[in-house]
Design a binder for these strands. Sequence first.
DNA 1: TTTT
DNA 2: TTTT
Lengths: 161, 161, 161, 161
Amino acid sequence: MLNRVILIGRLTKDPELRYTPAGVAVTQFTLAVDRPFTSGGSKEREADFINIVTWRQLAETCANYLRKGRLTAVEGRIQVRNYDNNEGKRVYVTEVIADNVRFLESNNSAGSREEGGSSNSNASYGGGSGSGNRGGGSREQQDPFIDDGKPIDISDDDLPF
Amino acid sequence: MLNRVILIGRLTKDPELRYTPAGVAVTQFTLAVDRPFTSGGSKEREADFINIVTWRQLAETCANYLRKGRLTAVEGRIQVRNYDNNEGKRVYVTEVIADNVRFLESNNSAGSREEGGSSNSNASYGGGSGSGNRGGGSREQQDPFIDDGKPIDISDDDLPF
Amino acid sequence: MLNRVILIGRLTKDPELRYTPAGVAVTQFTLAVDRPFTSGGSKEREADFINIVTWRQLAETCANYLRKGRLTAVEGRIQVRNYDNNEGKRVYVTEVIADNVRFLESNNSAGSREEGGSSNSNASYGGGSGSGNRGGGSREQQDPFIDDGKPIDISDDDLPF
Amino acid sequence: MLNRVILIGRLTKDPELRYTPAGVAVTQFTLAVDRPFTSGGSKEREADFINIVTWRQLAETCANYLRKGRLTAVEGRIQVRNYDNNEGKRVYVTEVIADNVRFLESNNSAGSREEGGSSNSNASYGGGSGSGNRGGGSREQQDPFIDDGKPIDISDDDLPF
DNA sequence: TTTT
DNA sequence: TTTT
C-alpha cells in the first residue's frame, strides 16, 4: 500500500543496460551501502549489496552517467520477483525499482558510456523473438537478469510503470 | 551510507517470535504490500511480499500485538544476508530490519498472544547449545529462520544493534 | 536535490478544496502527527501539526474521501514558500506537497463530500480575474491559502507538477 | 504517528553551534534543496530552504565537519514549534530535527571548526540564567534561535530525545 | 508458502 | 486555530 526506499551507496560495477524485445531500456546495478555499525567485534566495515533496477529514460541516463565506485542516491520501491530456475526450483529475487537517481559525484572524467571503453555490457536485445512460454497469463516471469546469452524474454506488459 | 525503508501493508500470517541462544528476542513476519498498479492487463491486484525482522523489545511487542491480516506500518533498513544451503550453494536473503513498527488497526479482538490460542509459534529457544560451527570469524552466518526444529545458531555478535 | 517526506497522522479538520483561476484543483488539510515521546515531564501526548497540499486529481480524491479524524498516510516533499503580508513583512510558510495519499481508515460512514453535509468548504474559485500583480516574473507569490474572500491569485505556472 | 524526512542539499552557511543553559549542544543550519522542476516558465533553478536542527553529539559533529556549500544528506522528522513574538503574535516555525546526517563531500580543505577561521558562531551559552518565564508548565516555548544576544532560555525538559 |  |  506504501512502499518507499531511499539509499545512498556506491556502485559495485558499471551499470548494465539492456533492452526488452519491445525495445524498452532497463538498467541494472548494485549499490554497496555501508552499515551504520560494525558487528561481531570485527572492525571491518560491512555493507549491504542491494540490486537496483531502472526503466526507460532513467535507465539510459543511469547507463550514461553512472560508473563503478560512484556515490549515488536512489529512491524507489522494493519489488520481490520469483521465477523457476533450471532445476525447477522457485527462486525469490528482491530488487529496488528506482524512480529517482541522484549522481552525488561529478563526472570529472567526463565520458558518456561510449567513451568509457572499459565496459561492454550495453548490448541491445532489441530484436528477440519472445519464444513462446509466456502463455497462460502467469504472473511468474523468468528472471530478466539471468545471463544465458539469449534475448531476455519479457514483454512490455511486465513493466512496472 | 543511508538506508531507509518505509512500508505499509498487511501481515500474511501471525508473527513468529524466537530467541537466540543468548536469549535475545527476534520476531519475523511478512508484509503483503499492494503495488500501485496492475500489470499485464490483468485486473487482479498484485503485491510484494516483504520479510520483516525485529529484535529485542520491539520483537516482543510485535509478537504480542500483531496478527495475520493487520494493516501495519514498518520503518527500517534493507539487509542482505547470505548463507550456504545444504547443497553448499550460496543463498541470498533480503529482509527489512525494522526499528519502528506502527499498528494501524486496533486490537478490537483484544488478545495478547497468550490469549490468542490460534498460534503456537512463540517457542523460546533460550537454552540452546550454540556451539560448533561458528569458528573462523566468518561473517557468513546460517539462516536463523530456516526451521529445522533445532535451536537457531546465532550469537549476540550477529545482532544488528 | 532529494526531498522526501512520509507522514502518518490524523486530519484536524475536513479538507478544503479550492480551484485556481485556471480551474486547477488544490486541497489543503492539516495532519496531527503524534510525537514518539513525551517531553517536559508532562504525560500529555504532543503532536506536530503539519500542513499538507495536494493538486489536481489527487486533490479531488482527498476532498472526496478524507474527513476530520481519519488516520492517513502522506508521501511528498517539503516546500517553503514566502509572501509579503499586509504589513509588508515577509512570511515563510512550510508545507508538504503530497504526491501520494493513503486512506488508512475505511469510509464506513460512506459518503462522498456532497453527502457529508457538515462541510461547506468546497467552493470553486474557477472564475477569478487573476490579473495584476504577477508581473515582473517574481517567484514570490501570494499565499493561496489566505482566505480573503477573493479568488486566489495563482496561475498554472506556479503548479509544482 | 510516523514522521520521516530525508533530504539531500547544500548548506547555505556554516552551521551554528550553541548550548542550552544546561550545557546541551544544539546546532542549526539551513539546507538548500533544489526542486526537481522549474516553474513559471523561468529557467532559473529554484530551491527550498529548509531549517535543520541537531542535538547533543550529532550537533557537535555537524559543527565540526559541515561547512557552507557542502552536499549533505539529512534524515529526521518534521517539527512544528510556535512562540509569541515581541508583538504578542503567535509565530509558527517548521524545522527538521535530524537524527542522522551524512557528509557527502570530503573535508579536503581539512579543518575542524577551530581551524576554519571564517566562522565565529560556536559561542557557548552554557552559563545562562534561564530568567524566569517558564513557569506554568506551558508547552509553548520561546524560539531558541532568535538571536537577541542573550543566553537562550531552554531547559533540558524541552529536548526532543 | 502469502494479506484486505 | 488543532487529531484519536
